[in-house]
Design a protein around this nucleic acid. Sequence first.
DNA 1: CCCCACATGTAATCCGTTACATGATTAT
DNA 2: ATAATCATGTAACGGATTACATGTGGGG
Lengths: 184, 184
Amino acid sequence: MSLPHAILTALLEKPSSGLELTRRFDRSIGYFWSATHQQIYRELGKLEAEGYIRALPSEQPARGQKKSYEVLPAGRDELARWTATAQEPKPLRDALLLRLRASAVVGTEGIEAELRRHLARHQRQLTEYEEIEERDFGPGRDTPQDRLQHLILRAGIDLETFWTRWLTQALETFERLPAEERPS
Amino acid sequence: MSLPHAILTALLEKPSSGLELTRRFDRSIGYFWSATHQQIYRELGKLEAEGYIRALPSEQPARGQKKSYEVLPAGRDELARWTATAQEPKPLRDALLLRLRASAVVGTEGIEAELRRHLARHQRQLTEYEEIEERDFGPGRDTPQDRLQHLILRAGIDLETFWTRWLTQALETFERLPAEERPS
DNA sequence: CCCCACATGTAATCCGTTACATGATTAT
DNA sequence: ATAATCATGTAACGGATTACATGTGGGG
């Protein structure tokens, strides 16, 4: 039950239309909570029906016409409630680790190329985050909001750093596995 | 589409009944791909219908009677195919980071306790992984399969290490946020 | 006039979650 | 006997994913 709260957060930061939200979910918020436009439109409908948001009165509600939303006080209250609620961390789910375990049983054919592909992806993401850090969190940006945003970005940077290191180590392990000893 | 492949992997490691699989998904494989018994029974039915696994002939298929499965050659082939297939890494989804971002807008009330709770969970998980490492991967365990399994465990250890460090740093950041300056 | 990009949706399907149902085995 | 536990399922619901549908406005 996090998507509606992700949308409330985005709309509080800046009132937007469905497509603008979709674009913002492709960067920024989407870095840790992704969503497609179909999910977003459906959820906007629900949030409006529940009285958490409303369409800005200026625009007419026709199909193909832009329609922007803003958060109502009830929406802000709900978001604050949810933010403070105790929730268990979701267990990890990672298909690459699963495939690595499978490869120990059915053979490592093809998995090395996958490790390389993933390494390249994570390196690219790391670079992107580091550019954002340099651009948006230089000296002087030190309000409480800045520190919180920076903390979140740091999580992304540290996570991508973990993956690049681990994948590098994994590839080294593969290079030291003599081909004739590999599981098949 | 990873749950059937997780089950095929588990059954190749050792033929099992539905409940035995459920127990193994609570440790071991479940550390990076969790599943409930309902998911597992549903998926076992599908895998059997597709000819990827079969019930061991010894047991009679009555309700309440144990029923063990083994992987057929077609199942092993499918698993090998899937393991070698190119797949994009799934984007990160983390509710705690989302809540932290929301707290920058609606106030940090309550979120600090959540950071502490999560820190405790991750420290406990880290300890568990380190005990497994000591028990199962001491000197002498060095077949290719051992090295692959150890690599997977290292991913878990390094991930939990990342979280404990980041959460510790996050809590320090909060302690330095003067209460009167916090977003509300 | 037509195509394309912008913008908002609907429909079908699959996966995960929660609650419930039912039979078999074992201990008291 | 009966209660607890082991074991295998069904049903209902909701979220995520994929494919498709519909309307608007601007450029060539």
